[in-house]
């Protein structure tokens, strides 16, 4: 498992664990970023743009660091 901010643009990932504080994790889940879902990195320049399902999420670096993903 890697933190989300270490991935590269174009990579496909599985969201494994939302290690951020509870409130932020809640928000992410509501926006469709739940554990186990498949995602794609659109761009990663410290801040990350992540596509999960049909949702395109922009996530700050700090938050990205606490999201653990695995490459598939």
């Amino acid at each position: 498992m890697y933190p989300l901010n270490t991935t590269n643009a174009g990579e496909k990932v599985f969201i494994k664990c939302l290690g951020c504080n509870c409130q932020d994790a809640c928000r992410l889940r509501e926006m469709g970023c739940v554990e186990g879902i498949k995602g794609k990195i659109i761009s990663n320049n410290s801040n990350v743009v992540l596509q999960v399902g049909d949702t395109r999420l922009a996530i700050s670096k700090k938050l990205a660091r606490s999201i653990l993903v695995s490459l598939n």
């Binding site: 932020d24 926006m31 922009a58 996530i59």
Partner: peptide
Amino acid sequence: STPFMMELPS
């Protein structure tokens, strides 16, 4: 302060 997250519309 809360970290930034926002949906980017197409």
